[in-house]
Structures are given as structure tokens and as C-alpha cells.
């Protein structure tokens, strides 16, 4: 493994983990709103969040590119007012991974929240706990397995993300190259040995992520 390859592996793992953390507060809040409340437009938001799951990732990437490009609505504002660029930087990778993995987290967490008996939350309230305390001491711990499973899924999805990333971040050496992008490029250039080395790393990363989640879940059961 060259130092450049190590850098790619490190960058991919790091930005995937970061994207999982970035979507966590928003994803949990949204999942809770979907699970516990009824509000107008709920089904539309629900569909919207799940769109990246069903649309071609490249199409999602194209939408993001149009939105966050310097001439896009959001990108134009960020560039013009804050002099802040997203497209073709590591931030674009983070954006693509976040958008692509959000539905997985929201879906898992929502099901997990729905399975928490509302009576437990209500009784916690009669014991003097306000909304935040109920959420963090009753709802989240009881939904922990589903939330962790959702986070692992989101992380794994981010690790392997290709289509949306290449649209918004390109494949810039040392800047936005991720594992998937590099493997694709290596194969394109006929450097199969390089591709296989990175393939091995991908397998190890995926294995570690799944093993770690299993470990957490098993420990969770024991403490009950």
C-alpha cells in the first residue's frame, strides 16, 4: 500500500463516519417526528427523504450539483454571501454521503421509535421528566438497537457511495478521491493489482463495521 492509498482509505473512513454523525441529530429528530406525530405534509416529507434510496445515485448527484453549484440556489448563496464553496471539495463528498445515507438511518430509527411503548414515555412524564429527558432516558435507550443498526447501515452505505459522489465531488487526487472512486479509476487504467489491494481494504472495513455493530447489539442484550 502506498501512502497515497492509505490517505484514500483514511479519508473514506473518516468522511463516512463524519457523514453518519452529521445526519444523526437531524435523522433522529425526523424519525421521531415521523413515528410519533401527525402533521400536514408528513407523507410528502417521508417520500422526499426516501427518494435517494430509489433514484439512481447519479441522478441524486446531479440534483445536488445543480443546487450546490456556484450558479445553484444554495451554492450561489453560499459562494456569494459567505465565499464558501461546496462542489469539488471534500465538503461535496460529505454532502453526497450524507444525502445518500440519510434514508437508511431515518427508516431504521423510525421503526425503532414506533416500537417503543408510548405508555412508558407517558409514565416517565408523570414521574416529572420533561420531553428531552423522556427522549434521552426512555425513547433513545429503548430504540438503541434500531438506531445503531441504522447508523451502521448509513456508514456502510457511505463507504461504498459512488454515483452521487462523482457527480458533485469529481475524483480529485488527494482531495475528493474515495475508495470506490479509486477502485473504479484503477480498473479503468488497467491497474488491477492496485484495485485488488483496495478491494481487500473495503472488505476489511465492511467486516469491521458489521462485526462492531453485532458486538454492540450483543452487549446491549446482556445488560438487559
Amino acid at each position: 500500500m502506498t501512502s497515497e492509498e492509505w490517505q484514500i482509505v483514511w479519508f473514506t473512513a473518516w468522511v463516512s463516519a463524519l457523514s453518519t454523525l452529521v445526519i444523526l441529530p437531524f435523522g433522529l429528530a425526523l424519525a421521531w417526528e415521523l413515528a410519533r406525530r401527525d402533521w400536514p405534509g408528513k407523507s410528502i416529507v417521508e417520500t422526499f427523504v426516501s427518494l435517494p434510496l430509489v433514484m439512481p445515485p447519479v441522478a441524486t448527484g446531479l440534483i445536488l450539483l445543480k443546487l450546490f453549484g456556484r450558479r445553484g440556489t444554495i451554492g450561489g448563496f453560499l459562494h456569494g454571501r459567505l465565499n464558501f464553496d461546496v462542489i469539488f471539495t471534500w465538503r461535496a463528498v460529505l454532502l453526497a454521503l450524507s444525502v445518500m445515507s440519510l434514508p437508511l438511518l431515518v427508516r431504521s430509527a423510525r421503526v425503532a421509535f414506533e416500537e417503543v411503548n408510548p405508555r412508558l414515555e407517558q409514565i416517565a412524564r408523570t414521574l416529572g421528566a420533561g420531553n428531552w429527558r423522556v427522549f434521552f432516558t426512555i425513547t433513545v435507550p429503548l430504540a438503541a438497537r434500531g438506531i445503531i443498526a441504522g447508523m451502521i447501515l448509513a456508514f456502510a452505505r457511505a463507504l461504498g457511495e459512488f454515483g452521487a459522489t462523482i457527480m458533485v465531488a469529481g475524483n480529485i487526487h488527494g482531495k475528493t478521491s474515495t475508495l470506490s472512486l479509486t477502485i473504479f479509476q484503477d480498473v479503468q487504467l488497467g491497474q488491477d493489482t492496485n484495485a485488488f489491494r483496495l478491494l481487500g481494504v473495503s472488505v476489511v472495513l465492511a467486516f469491521a463495521a458489521v462485526w462492531f455493530s453485532e458486538f454492540l447489539l450483543r452487549r446491549k442484550i446482556k445488560t438487559r
Binding site: Q122, R125, T126, L127, G128, L142
Partner: peptide
């Protein structure tokens, strides 16, 4: 709001918190 009423409630299914020990349940309120 419920948490400011100071009214204890033991529901029919008791609603003990399954992820907490007896001691933690007792201390919750």
C-alpha cells in the same frame, strides 16, 4: 403539562422501564 402536575400514575401494565434496573426505576422520579 404532565411532568409538572405532581400526579403519580400506576397504569394497568405498570410500565416499568425494561432497560433500567429496579433501583434505577425507583430513582427515576
Amino acid at each position: 403539562p404532565t411532568h409538572q402536575r405532581g400526579i403519580g400514575y400506576v397504569p394497568q401494565d405498570l410500565a416499568l422501564f425494561p432497560h433500567l434496573s429496579v433501583h434505577q426505576n425507583l430513582l427515576y422520579g
